[in-house]
Amino acid sequence: MALPTRSRRRLRPSAPLPIVILASAGAAFFIIPLLGLLLRTPWASAWQQLGSAEVLAALRLSLLASLSATAIALTLGVPLAWTFARLTFPGRSVLRALTVLPMVLPPVVGGVALLLAFGRRGLVGGWLATTFGVHLPFTTAGAIIAETFVAMPFLVITVEAGLRSMDTRFEDAARTLGASRWTVLWRVTLPLVRPSLIAGAVLCWARALGEFGATITFAGNFPGRTQTMPLAVYLALESNPDAAIVLSLVLLGVSLAVLIGLRDRWLGAS
């Protein structure tokens, strides 16, 4: 299923001076804070901080929760993106705005909203508790839900953009050749938007990994259960700023490794 590739040679673009200056300022804006973090890192005690049981628990929980959130977001978010990209129905734009709202909502507000929905006295939470004995706040499941809530919109809009920009003639061709709708989706549509799917999943995962406000508001903070890395960093800042810096570096390192690795391998970017 090869798309017509653009193989014509392009001139190396040379940038106008203002662009170079502003782009350098933009890059410096991101690099300088990182540099600040690196320069203040207490390297001598770093390994000792890293080996502590609480740090390892937070790291493990962060990976588990962010990967689970990404899995849920893929399961629910891809159908949602497909719906927004392919179907027209009344109220679509409103629904679409509502599902990406967590991107602009302060995460703490999102956490409160989740409490009002899934909390002990929440709209659905009360029913969940009395019928199934399921309590979400203060549990790892709660942390996963908070991360999914905040991170899924990134997947939805990325995949939707991919679906909108893809060449739908391939789908039409498959249909005329007798493939069922389901086969077309699995064998044509999703493979064609694979770069968007991966980019969306990576963005979603990265956002989930860094999630703080909704998690601490909805799931609380308890080591090993709901204390993810960002929460551990925040609390360490209160008592032991050195440990907080080391923790931040770990989070940064893990995220950078994944983002760089995935970009080169999957997105084919140079």
Binding site: V112, A219, L231
Partner: peptide, 14 residues
Amino acid sequence: PASQEADVKSVLSK
């Protein structure tokens, strides 16, 4: 405790 909150206000709101 079910949670160790980051500040007093969070305990209060829970």
